[in-house]
Design a protein around this nucleic acid. Structure first.
Length: 1067
RNA sequence: GGGCCCGUAGCAUAGCCCGGUGGUGCGCCCGGCUGAUAACCGGGAGGUCAUGUGUUCGAAUCACAUCGGGCCCA
């Protein structure tokens, strides 16, 4: 045990603990310790390897680390590799930026092999940076051997999973409408689409009906560029449509519009007048055919047989008629399939029109918007602009389009029921994350487009015959190598593209060029991290995962992708329990973003406040599943709490060392945590109380962590340190710690403090692993484990909880506050003793509490006695105040008479009569008046020097009257305090002796302090020689090392002290 | 447009499931303590419990609607 003098310096402590962990391989040793324990398989949700970690990622890892540290301590063999998501478009985009590329052509020109290499380096470098950052947060995941989605063993797991999908008939190639990023020239998944507000044209277009002159269907759209792909107009079968003759500038034309929308549409088209010709429900309009208004320029449109179809998704908005382009919209596509409409898509992968689009050939879609408007000519009924939400590519922010293309799909929609069933078997924290949020998301599950037309990703292991079109899915590298007779140096592109496989038909199979959607990578993490299918043993032993935890955004992301992939491959959920956590927001509750400039990095917090502070802050400030509003004040408050913890810990150390205190040990030298139980009978009440409290807290903390309520666990512990330990127990125990020589009382205090600190270190170690490690290392016995993280979790012992004592102490604390309050009212400082404090109550529990803990009460109140008075306290007087509002209505004009009668009556007697429910009558000059309870209120009248304050279950009265004896003690304490202050200024040690002289410029006060008070002072200040004399200055002969002028209660006092070195041994 | 979550003092939060006097911390103001001391403790002021409607003897709590924030979807 070493003394620690400095105040809490987080960075120093944390650095030295990190060094210790590293040098002594503590993480490895901790894992080895639990190798024989029951397994606990955790899968780290892999962060994406771009750049630095942010507050949200830090929070995520801190939650994981806290739960895993706890889990290890409870005797589980925790398997927890860190993981990284290293493929995908985001990295490609960053590398493209570095290389100054703008399109896929640049990449092809540069060479796919070289490009892949750049991406690989980028991902690997970032991974290293992030691992170091996570380790600096004290995160104990396996960073030495993280799973990496770009490693062959991982890629093989993805291949294997796809081959399982193929075997199950869940893999399908389909011509579908997909989200398409024209810049990245690839399909992107629903989950990769970001929605943001944009302004687009909002146009109303007239489609000329074939066979009817000047008669039109009116549609509305915000994407003029999709009109070249129009094949139909959809109407709702039940909506009523109107045929109107509209007049504009003298010209008449006939328009079809949903009846309820006629007025608004015509207003937009600036028609001056109209006339209703007929009405018909949508289902009667299906006979209409129409021609395209832009067929002159868009050649493709001339060959289309446009017609009206019905669809339920049409709503009574805009015109009530919907332009259908099955090549550019999901609903349109489904409708097109049902109605056997032609599915056309005259837009290429880069978002440019093909030659089919006639004069638009080569034009980018958005640039085509104004051209199309022009081409529409008089068919354009109205044009406005509209601000609405539109999908964008999640990485390059380009507005997405819908394109009908050939892609590979997993038939997730076929698995909905199976997945929903599995969701119900998973334990969710909070419960609604699974039962409401995730459940709703799965219900809407659509087929999952897993193919991307890019480079940096896991190549889709499908080989297709050029001759017969047959395809084959390879589940392992060896399978491929065997079939091809070639070895595979790297399963990435372009190497894998170059491997042909002979087909049964005699032709040659080549790999389809696509790579996997990056979400498929992480989807297989739970078995890929176990190196399955390459290795089977770990998988069979561990899978599925016992626990995962990620942010709420992963509902559609990782929670879903994993469930989907696992349901295909294994028919069940890959995780048993999930904690869904919130998002890290700024203090205003907005998302942290670079553009808002409100980003707080974990590093900022760590360098100014420390890792443990950051950890405890994010864990305690909100429930894991709520969003975290970052707030510097909150961080500082946590820092202060940890500082108090540090102070509480270092306070007893010098005394324990001075007394050579050694904790009780078992025969093997480990700390004997049971020894204290046998001594409980002889221990002071406050010792038994704090022991009970730490046990109740431990029970609460264990339960909270089990329920993943990390905020409750940490708040309970912070509260304990601040309220119970620092503000109460340490205050009570201090005098005992200062006792000279050996005493049982002091030893009991040491035992108690030691017990509490050891317990606290253990309970807090999952959350603030550095400071607790430092403390533990200092107070452990030689034979204890070297690290607090190698100790077993202690969850409290119900048998050591004394509920009655805890309640009694609560009452005493309430008494303490009240007596301090009453003193303040009486302007009597705590240093000055009072003759008595009286608790007036009828509450039996209060009476018992004050009675059994009276010495604590006396100490705290600095009262010579503390006593309880039941019922009425005879020193309290009462003043009766008539209630005129009540008297007026009853006594009318006589009310003032009654008022005076009440005032002149004995108030105390009146009160007791009314309290006892007696009939009270007051005789007046002209009669007798009956007084009811509501007619009078009673005001307490206290004699001089008596002050009161309410406590729970009673009232405390403090008599602040002074006697010579009390005054002497008060002055003594004033003098002691000042001399102690001077000792500190001289930097004297606690055990040093001094010589001192006090000169008091008041003969009466001076004489009060002679005799036994002088002796008491001398002892308290450890003085070998001590004098008190009247006067106004120290004698000129004496020369003290430190002299100081003071004023005590208006009396000038001069004090001089020197270190007493003549007889060093003297006590 | 839809699903889920959140809204309580200047700030951050507890209480909400299961209705019965709204607690706590920070900050602010006043005081105390003085061998944990650049520490610590006490007191005070500060609240339309987002808004509205309903259910109820009684609503921060339950229901419905609206507004604001977040995540996700269309």
């Amino acid at each position: 045990m070493k003394e620690v003098t400095s105040s809490y310096h987080a960075n120093e402590i944390e650095e030295s603990v990190r060094q210790f962990w590293l040098k002594d391989s503590i993480f490895e040793k901790t894992r080895e310790l639990h190798i024989g324990d029951p397994d606990f398989f955790f899968v780290d949700g892999p962060p994406y390897t771009t750049g630095n970690i942010h507050l949200g990622t830090a929070w995520n890892k801190i939650i994981k680390d806290s739960i895993l540290r706890y889990t290890r301590m409870t005797g589980r063999n925790v398997i927890a590799r860190a993981g990284y998501d290293m493929h995908g478009l985001p990295i490609e985009v960053r590398v493209e930026q570095q290389l100054g590329f703008v399109s896929k052509k640049d990449i092809e020109r540069f060479g796919i092999g070289r490009f892949i290499e750049q991406c690989r380096t980028f991902a690997a470098d970032n991974m290293e940076v992030m691992s170091r950052q996570f380790e600096a947060l004290g995160i104990w995941l396996d960073f030495a051997d993280p799973y990496q989605t770009m490693k062959p063993e991982y890629i093989e797991a993805a291949w294997w999973t796809l081959s399982r999908a193929d075997e199950e008939g869940m893999l399908e190639r389909g011509h579908r409408v997909v989200n398409w990023c024209p810049r990245c020239a690839t399909a992107i998944a629903d989950s990769e689409v970001d929605y943001a507000d944009v302004t687009d044209p909002s146009i109303y277009v007239k489609f000329p009906i074939i066979g009817r002159d000047h008669e039109y269907l009116v549609i509305w759209t915000t994407t003029p560029w999709t009109l070249p792909a129009n094949v139909a107009v959809a109407v709702h079968p039940d909506i009523l449509y109107a045929r109107v003759e509209a007049v504009k500038d003298g010209k008449k034309e006939i328009l079809w519009i949903a009846e309820d929308l006629v007025e608004s549409v015509l207003r937009k088209g600036r028609y001056q007048d109209y006339r209703l010709l007929e009405k018909a429900v949508g289902s009667h309009l299906t006979g209409f055919t129409y021609s395209s208004p832009i067929e002159d320029t868009v050649t493709l449109q001339r060959d289309i047989a446009h017609r009206v179809v019905t669809a339920d998704f049409v709503t009574l908005e805009n015109t009530g008629m919907v332009h259908i382009a099955p090549g550019h919209g999901w609903d349109d596509y489904l409708l097109g399939c049902r109605e056997q409409l032609p599915i056309i898509c005259p837009v290429d992968a880069t978002g440019r029109f093909t030659s089919e689009a006639g004069t638009l050939d080569g034009m980018f879609i958005k640039e085509a918007d104004p051209v199309v408007l022009e081409d529409l000519g008089h068919h354009l009924l109205a044009v406005e602009s509209v601000s609405h939400r539109y999908g964008h590519c999640w990485r390059c922010k380009t507005p997405i389009i819908f394109r009908a293309t050939e892609q590979w799909f997993l038939k997730a929609s076929d698995m909905r029921d199976r997945m929903l069933e599995e969701v119900g078997k998973v334990t969710w924290y909070p419960e609604w994350a699974g039962s409401a949020r995730f459940y709703d998301w799965i219900k809407e599950a659509r087929d999952w487009c897993i193919s991307r037309q890019r480079y940096w990703g896991i190549p889709i292991p499908i080989w297709e015959c050029r001759s017969c079109g047959k395809h084959r899915v390879f589940g392992t590298f060896s399978e491929l190598e065997e079939a091809s007779g070639r070895s595979l140096p790297d399963p990435h592109r372009p190497f894998v593209d170059e491997i042909p496989v002979p087909c049964q038909c005699g032709g040659e199979m080549r790999r389809v060029e696509d790579i996997f959607d990056v979400w498929f990578d992480s989807a297989v993490a739970s078995w890929a991290t176990l190196r399955f299918p390459g290795e089977k043993e770990a998988f069979e032993r561990l899978w599925p995962a016992d626990f995962i935890t990620e942010g709420q955004d992963q509902t559609r992301g990782w929670f879903y992708s994993q469930l989907g992939a696992s349901t295909i491959a294994f028919g069940c959920s890959p995780y048993r329990s999930v904690l869904m956590h919130g998002f890290a927001l700024d203090a205003e509750g907005r998302k942290m973003s670079k553009s808002l400039g409100n980003v707080v990095t974990p590093d900022e917090v760590v360098t100014t406040q420390g890792v443990d502070v950051l950890r405890l802050y994010v864990l305690s400030s909100s429930a894991p599943w709520d969003d975290l509003k970052f707030n510097w004040e909150g961080v500082k408050t946590v820092n202060r709490a940890i500082n108090i913890f540090w102070n509480v810990y270092r306070f007893p150390l010098p005394y324990m060392i001075l007394d050579h205190y050694e904790p009780c040990t078992f025969s093997d030298g480990r700390w004997d945590d049971t020894a204290i139980q046998s001594r409980l009978g002889t221990m002071a009440a406050e010792d038994r109380w704090i022991l009970s409290r730490i046990n109740s807290c431990a029970l609460l903390v264990s339960r909270a962590v089990e329920e993943r309520q990390l905020h409750r666990a940490t708040r309970t512990l912070i509260q304990f340190i601040l309220e119970d330990l620092s503000r109460w127990y340490v205050q009570l125990v201090r005098p005992r710690i200062w006792l000279e020589g050996e005493s049982d009382a002091k030893t009991a205090a040491y035992e108690t403090i030691y017990y509490v600190l050891r317990r606290l270190c253990g309970l807090l170690s999952p959350f603030i692993p550095h400071i607790t490690e430092m403390m533990f290392r200092n107070i452990r016995t030689q034979s204890d484990p070297p690290s607090v993280h190698m100790t077993d979790w202690w969850g409290g012992d119900e048998n050591l909880v004394d509920g009655v004592l805890e309640r009694f102490m609560d009452i005493v604390r309430s008494f303490d506050e009240a007596s301090a309050n009453a003193r303040q009212a009486g302007k009597r400082k705590l240093r000055w003793p009072v003759p008595e404090a009286v608790v007036v109550t009828d509450n039996e529990e209060v009476i018992a509490a004050i009675g059994s803990l009276s010495s604590i009460c006396e100490d705290r109140a600095n009262a010579r006695t503390v006593r309880v008075v039941r019922g009425a306290y005879d020193r309290i007087g009462w003043k009766a105040e008539p209630v005129m509002k009540a008297l007026g209505p009853v006594f009318g004009k006589k009310a003032p008479v009654v008022r005076d009668l009440i005032r002149s009556h004995d108030a105390a007697a009146l009160k007791s009569q009314l309290d006892n429910g007696e009939m009270v009558t007051l005789p007046g000059a002209d009669g007798v008046y009956q007084i009811q309870p509501g007619f009078v209120t009673f005001i307490e009248e206290l004699p001089p020097d008596l002050y009161q304050a309410p406590m729970s279950g009673g009232t405390v009265y403090v008599d602040v009257a002074l006697t010579a004896d009390l005054e002497a003690e008060g002055y003594s304490r004033e003098v002691i305090r000042r001399i102690q202050e001077m000792r500190r200024q001289r930097d004297l040690n606690v055990e040093d002796y001094i010589m001192a002289a006090v000169v008091i410029d008041d003969d009466r006060v001076c004489s009060l302090l002679q005799g036994r008070w002088r002796e008491a002072i001398r002892e308290e200040i450890r003085a070998g020689i001590f004098m008190i004399s009247p006067g106004s200055a120290l004698s000129p002969q004496s020369s003290f090392e430190l002299e100081k002028d003071w004023e005590i209660e208006g009396v000038p006092v001069v004090i001089g002290i020197s270190k007493f070195t003549d007889q060093p041994g003297k006590k």
